[in-house]
C-alpha cells in the first residue's frame, strides 16, 4: 500500500513547498554546474542529479536509477535523509508527503534549468525509503 503524493496535490501547502523547492533547485544547479563539462544527453543529466546533486544536498547518492527509456525515470533512495529521523516502517506514513514535496520541486527546478521540463512525484511505502518519479515533458 503506497502512499501517493498525488492525494495531497490539491492541498495548497504541498504546492507551496513544491514551488519553493523548484526555486531552490534552479538556484542550486546554476551554482553547481558552472564548472562542469557539458552534458551528453538526458541520461547523463539524470546521472548527475542522482550522483553529484544528491550528494551535495543529502550527503548520499541515489541508490537506484531506473528508466523505461521513454522519458520516465525512477530515483530510489533507500534511506532518504528527511525521513530517517521520523520512522523506520509505516508509522507516520500519512505525513510523509509533506516532507517530500520540497524535494520533488528541487529535482524539477534543477532539471528545468538544465533544459528539461518534467513532472516529479514521490512515493513512499516504507520509511525511510522513497521513490521519486520523473516524467519528462517533451517540449
Amino acid at each position: 500500500m503506497g502512499f501517493s503524493f498525488c492525494n495531497y496535490r490539491k492541498m495548497g501547502c504541498i504546492t507551496k513547498l513544491e514551488n519553493m523547492g523548484f526555486r531552490v533547485g534552479q538556484g542550486l544547479i546554476e551554482r553547481f554546474t558552472k564548472d562542469t563539462a557539458r552534458f551528453k544527453d538526458e541520461l547523463d543529466i539524470m546521472k548527475f542529479i542522482c550522483k553529484d546533486f544528491w550528494t551535495t544536498v543529502f550527503k548520499k547518492q541515489i541508490d537506484n536509477l531506473r528508466t523505461n527509456h521513454q522519458g520516465i525515470y525512477v530515483l530510489q533512495d533507500n534511506k532518504f535523509r528527511l525521513l530517517t529521523q521520523m520512522s523506520a516502517g509505516k508509522q507516520y506514513l500519512e505525513h510523509a508527503p509533506k516532507y517530500l514535496a520540497f524535494t520533488c520541486g528541487l529535482i524539477r527546478g534543477a532539471l528545468s534549468n538544465l533544459g528539461i521540463k518534467s513532472i516529479v512525484t514521490a512515493e513512499v511505502s516504507t520509511m525511510p525509503a522513497c521513490k521519486f518519479q520523473v516524467m519528462i515533458q517533451k517540449m
Binding site: K16, N19, M20, R23, V24, R31, T55, T56, V57
Partner: peptide, 20 residues
C-alpha cells in the same frame, strides 16, 4: 566546496521561504 554548497542550499532555501 561541499561545505559552501550546503550553506548555499540553506541560503537559497531561506530565500525561497521569505519569498513565499
Amino acid at each position: 566546496e561541499s561545505k559552501k554548497m550546503s550553506s548555499e542550499l540553506f541560503t537559497l532555501t531561506y530565500g525561497a521561504l521569505v519569498t513565499q
